[in-house]
């Protein structure tokens, strides 16, 4: 994607209706150029996860506009027919909890995504192995998820989010269970990915260790975003 990254304009999301309605997103404006890792910070309940879910085409927003690269995916309604293919081909997810597939070993948990996208088993595993190496869990490649530590699981989940080289990566508290050295390694890899593959990356975080690394930060409070220049210069 010789893309323009992510653009979100006037995005709104209301859960439920009537008396019990919750306006989780009231007015979200965001722009993430390709090749950049942007931080999203806000208190609990401010709408961070809701925003990632909308952008990840997992839940439907109420109004607004979202553009991935050249493609308008949402403009008061979905503009893409096959949301699952959109997620598979365009979006990498890294969740708060790793949620690995318990019956696949570490390598295949990662390799499953390129396989689903139609790549050969050999090529898929090759890509998985490279990422596992970069994330320092390659020595557990044949282990089952239940046999590795929480930190290792999180790194495998990160590899899974990156393996299809999606133009957009959405990460929800990716470094929470990691020590500072490993957390910084993850951010380094995300920055590398961003630069190499022109990826636009949003990282939701509370993590003091990594906040200083962002060039640009969005704050969200009660469903409204505010932009702020970060102190970091990324990883050069």
């Amino acid at each position: 994607m010789a893309g323009k990254g992510i653009r979100i304009e006037g995005l709104k999301k209301r859960y439920g209706s009537g008396d019990t309605a919750v306006d989780a997103l009231k007015n979200v404006d965001m722009q993430v150029p390709p090749g950049e890792v942007v931080g999203l910070i806000g208190p609990s309940g401010s709408g961070k996860t809701t925003l990632l879910k909308c952008l990840g085409a997992v839940i439907e927003p109420t109004a607004g506009r979202m553009t991935l690269g050249d493609e308008v995916i949402y403009d008061d309604e979905w503009k893409v027919g096959d949301l699952r293919a959109l997620r598979r081909d365009k979006i990498g997810f890294i969740f708060q909890a790793p949620y690995l597939i318990p019956f696949l070993d570490v390598t295949d948990n990662v390799a499953l995504l390129p396989m689903l996208a139609g790549k050969s088993n050999a090529e898929s595993r090759q890509r998985a192995t490279e990422l596992l190496q970069a994330l320092d869990v390659e020595h557990r490649a044949k282990a089952m998820p239940s046999q590795i530590s929480g930190g290792e699981q999180q790194r495998v989940a990160i590899a899974r989010g990156l393996v299809n080289r999606p133009p957009v990566i959405l990460a929800d508290e990716p470094t929470a269970p990691l020590d500072s050295e490993r957390a910084l390694a993850v951010i380094r890899i995300l920055n590398q990915m961003a630069r190499q593959h022109e990826t636009a990356i949003i990282v939701v975080t509370h993590d003091e260790k990594i906040i200083p690394t962002f060039k640009r930060i969005y704050h969200i409070r009660d469903g409204v975003t505010y932009e702020e220049a970060g102190e970091g210069r990324g990883f050069e």
Binding site: R84, R87, D89, Y99, L116, A117
Partner: peptide, 16 residues
């Protein structure tokens, strides 16, 4: 259920 949710999230088809 959770694994199936993950499979769907990462784009696995209903058919699969």
């Amino acid at each position: 259920i959770r694994e199936i949710a993950v499979l769907k999230l990462i784009g696995t088809r209903n058919r699969t």
